[in-house]
Simulated assay, not measured.
Amino acid sequence: MAYVEESSFERDMSYIPDRVLVGARSGDPLDDRFPSGSKDSPRDVKVWPVEPGRYRLVAAKACPWANRAIIVRELLGLQEVIGLGTPGPTHDAQSWTFDLDPDGLDPVLGIHWLQEAYFNRIPGYERGITVPAIVDIGSKAVVTNDFPQITHDLFFEWREHHRPDAPDLWPADLREEMEEVMQRVFTEVNNGVYRCGFAGTQQAYDDAYARLWTAMDWLEERLTARRYLMGDAITEADVRLFTTLARFDAVYHGHFKCNRNKLTEMPALWGYARDLFQTPGFGETIDFDQIKAHYYVVHTDVNPTGIVPQGPDESGWTTPHGRG
């Protein structure tokens, strides 16, 4: 996780911007993404070809941003096309580690720290070693860690390899509205809980808290009148919201002080979250023990004792949701 320490939390959204694109040739430049001479144009931005078996998705189940990619991979049926490496929930000063695997090594990449794959790509890489990351197996080098682009490209660029009944996560007729919904979900909810948790002043926290609950009330109202965020079918927008809701009562309510009320006390949102949890591709990607271990152990500034709470009771996630 990368963030800028200020009184008001701001997430560092600078990632390795390479893309895996259908029809691309390895090493082709991706100059058309940036205006000529733009100060924001990254050095050595390249495209990589869609090639089954070439890449490994490294995604810790504890991390909500990585959890998105795991879910999309499951929904689209890409399990046999793109491998999955799962670091443990806690990491040391160097980076995420594969401490859940035998000998502490990813069984395919043969590395202990994810940092090794970053350094194979950019020696001395100075930004955060984040998940999810797409890693080229042959070179053991990170291709990209741009989490919103990763799930976008899994849908649009890997279509030839989707299972026949894969959901349409980006329906053309809803895409414009969906982009607006996802932007609000990201800024106010996905990132909003972090803005509360990492606030450096009372005023920053109060402002973040107000923004979060304004958005949560908007979602509660929206989901009272429709089954999913965009209507009757699951889209990428639902994936992006779900990973925050799944962590809300277990972590964000207490650890991040997002405690106006619990998710279980919001009828529409709680029913919606259970609906998704019980949908194949969602619930099986959630590991509450890993989620709690990550936040309560790694965030020593927020929880200096490192004590991991026993609750809350998780059995409610499998109760009838009534949204069919």
Rank of each mutant, 00 (worst) to 15 (best):
P148V: 09
Q149L: 00
Q149F: 00
Q149G: 04
I150P: 01
D153V: 03
L154N: 05
F156P: 00
F156S: 15
R159I: 01
R159L: 02
R159Y: 00
R159V: 00
H161K: 09
H162T: 03
H162D: 04
R163P: 00
P164W: 10
P167I: 05
D168T: 11
L169D: 11
L169N: 09
P171M: 15
A172S: 15
L174I: 00
R175C: 08
E180F: 00
V181P: 09
V181M: 15
R184D: 11
R184P: 03
V185K: 07
V185F: 04
V185Y: 04
E188N: 15
V189P: 07
N191F: 01
N191P: 03
G197K: 13
A199S: 15
G200P: 08
G200T: 13
Y209W: 10
Y209C: 12
A210I: 01
A210D: 13
L212F: 05
W213P: 06
M216T: 11
W218V: 03
E220H: 06
R222A: 15
L223E: 07
T224A: 14
R226Q: 15
R227F: 01
R227E: 01
M230E: 08
A233V: 03
A233E: 12
T235F: 05
T235L: 07
R240G: 05
L241S: 08
L241K: 11
T243S: 11
F248C: 10
F248A: 12
F248P: 03
D249H: 09
D249N: 10
V251T: 06
V251H: 06
H253W: 02
G254Q: 15
H255T: 06
H255M: 12
C258S: 12
C258N: 10
C258A: 14
N259H: 13
N261A: 10
N261W: 00
N261R: 15
L263V: 00
P267F: 02
L269Q: 09
L269V: 02
W270V: 01
G271Y: 02
D275N: 12
L276G: 05
L276C: 08
F277R: 12
T279L: 11
G281P: 02
T285A: 08
